[in-house]
Simulated assay, not measured.
Amino acid sequence: MTNVIDGNAAAADVRAGIEDCVETLGAAGVTPRLATVLMNDQQASATYVSMKQQDCEEVGIAAEDVRIDSDAPAEELFDAVADLNARESVHGILVQDPTPEHVPDERVTSAVDPAKDVDAFHPENVGRLVADRPRFRPCTPHGIQRLLANAGVDLDGADVVVVGRSKIVGKPLANMLAGRGDGGNATVTLCHSHTDDLAAHTRRADVVVAAAGVTELIDGSMLSEGCVVVDVGINRVDETNEKGYRLVGDVDFESAKQKASAITPVPGGVGPMTRAMLLYNTVKAASEQTGVDVDLP
């Protein structure tokens, strides 16, 4: 019987540990604080920010919401980030994607103080990750790593195929799974839109991670018997229900479930863990900046 990996349950365990860390910090007079910066008019982005703010409040992390008009000069964003960098009471900073076209992405990722970069997008933090000396692990890849560990998936020597090469998921995850130590030591193949015969790669994999952003790109015919499937995709498809749509991943869940020994659902799989690991990184940042030791979950 296929194990449907419960991301909500795994995230709840992490959040419980985070609450303990927040109490430890609080006893030392420290309140961890995450500042989110939003500079776009997309409803989805506003929803994501609100969810992150709510997550913080539920575990005792102070949440600061910075909003900047999408038509404002780019310097207004960078001035706001510089102010947050300088404030000792702010331990984590997250600039919500996307930013307007007149704001250079590369400059945004470099503007946040690396010690407060809880997304782990700053070039210094990317370099540390590649060097196997991470300050922070990016939230979604770290969440995936934890989900696999919780499901009892042994990655040591495993053949893993990651489909998608984004800087947010695919590239950092490939580095983490191939790295030394717990949750690593896998042999990783990174596939993408230019890969010839994707199915030939996925069929030989012990673990397949789908993070291409393409609706139901991978189905059961592309998988080996007993493999583990992690679906990072969140895509809307039209549906005759109250919302007018339903959420599906990059994997055709029903056909993949017939082959997989374990699989993450959409929703309720990777998403909750991504949010939990943002809290993890924020508490870790507060601990390192203040010198108050905590027992991270």
Score class of each variant (00 low, 15 high):
178 A>K: 00
98 P>F: 02
280 Y>T: 15
278 L>T: 04
94 L>A: 07
251 V>M: 07
67 R>K: 13
267 P>L: 00
166 S>I: 05
115 A>D: 11
142 H>R: 15
146 R>I: 15
60 G>A: 07
15 R>G: 06
29 G>S: 07
186 A>K: 11
77 L>M: 02
182 D>T: 01
214 V>W: 05
212 A>D: 13
52 K>T: 06
288 E>H: 03
75 E>M: 10
83 D>H: 12
3 N>T: 09
292 V>T: 09
183 G>V: 04
14 V>F: 10
163 V>S: 10
87 R>W: 08
259 K>T: 06
76 E>P: 04
91 H>K: 04
188 V>E: 02
256 A>W: 12
4 V>D: 07
9 A>T: 11
167 K>C: 01
27 A>L: 03
152 G>Y: 07
184 G>Q: 01
105 D>N: 10
43 Q>N: 12
163 V>N: 14
24 T>Q: 06
159 D>T: 10
266 V>R: 11
7 G>T: 05
61 I>F: 11
5 I>V: 12
171 K>V: 13
259 K>C: 04
20 D>V: 11
36 T>L: 03
163 V>K: 14
39 M>P: 08
152 G>L: 04
189 T>V: 02
161 V>R: 09
51 M>A: 15
106 E>I: 06
155 L>G: 06
187 T>C: 06
270 V>S: 11
285 A>H: 09
209 V>C: 15
